[in-house]
Structures are given as structure tokens and as C-alpha cells.
Simulated assay, not measured.
Amino acid sequence: MFFLSREFSFDAAHRVIDYNGKCEKLHGHTYHLIVTITGDLKEDGMVLDFSILKKVVQEKVIVFLDHKYLNDVFENPTTEIVAQWIFKTLDNAFKEYNCKVYEIILFEGDNNRVSIR
């Protein structure tokens, strides 16, 4: 089984709902995203062209989240909720290419991350 990964980043602001701490106030992050897909090796010697991986993530995720106020997109935009949405969105999109999302790793800043498989 093969695993292909690509890294992305986007900037966004949010506030965490029903939270008592500094994250309840409006603030922003640079998010780093690692998308790993899995699939079978095809006759052309690739699972998926990396340019297609980039295009799908840009069109399905990055354009919706980059420089956005995440509370306008999600009821409570925790990193876990955002990562879950990314996983579901991309897993559906990559079916067209006979691939599946294996893992999403979403970093909120440099030191905090959530992974979902």
C-alpha cells in the first residue's frame, strides 16, 4: 500500500465557544495541514499525480478556510472540528481518483496539532 503526503498552510481567525480562557477571544493562527492519501499503484507508476493532490486540496479546503473567520464556517471551530471537516471533505473528493484519505494532521500554530485517520 502506498501513502502520499503533501503539506499546506493557511491563515485564519476564530474564537472558541463555551471556553473559559484566552482562546475564547478573537485570535488568529497560521495553520499547517498535512494531507496523506492512500491508494493502489496505477499503470502509469503513480498512485496520484502530486499536482492533482495539490489542486484538490486547494479547491476543496484552502479556498474555503484561508483568511477566513472560522466561526462563520463552523459553529465551534476547534482544531478537532476543522480537521474532521477537512477529512470528510477530502475523502469524498478523492474517491473520484480511486484514493482515500489516510490521515489529516492539522497544526494550530507551531506546537499544537490534531490528527485524524
Rank of each mutant, 00 (worst) to 15 (best):
S5N: 03
I116T: 05
M46F: 13
E43N: 14
C23I: 11
V63Y: 08
C99R: 01
K100H: 12
R117A: 03
K42L: 10
T89D: 06
D44I: 13
L70A: 00
V63K: 06
D11S: 10
E43C: 05
V114R: 02
K60G: 11
F3L: 13
I116Y: 00
N71V: 05
E7D: 15
M1Q: 08
F87M: 02
F2W: 15
K54N: 11
T38N: 14
V101F: 03
V61E: 05
E80K: 01
D11H: 11
N76W: 01
E7I: 13
F3W: 13
E24F: 06
F74C: 12
V61M: 12
L70C: 01
D91W: 01
S51M: 11
N20R: 04
H27Q: 14
K60H: 10
V35M: 10
Y102S: 12
N98L: 07
E43G: 08
H27I: 04
A83C: 09
K25T: 09
V35A: 10
R15P: 02
K42A: 12
D40M: 13
D72C: 09
M1N: 09
Y102D: 10
I34Q: 11
I86Y: 05
E59H: 14
G109E: 03
D49G: 05
L48H: 04
N98S: 09
F50G: 10
F8M: 07
V82A: 00
F3P: 07
V73L: 08
D44C: 10
L4I: 04
I37E: 00
E108T: 00
E7A: 10
G45Q: 09
V73S: 15
E24I: 07
V73G: 13
A13T: 04
Y19L: 02
V57F: 00
I17A: 02
I105T: 09
N112F: 03
T79E: 03
F2Y: 14
K54G: 09
Y69H: 08
D66H: 08
T78P: 01
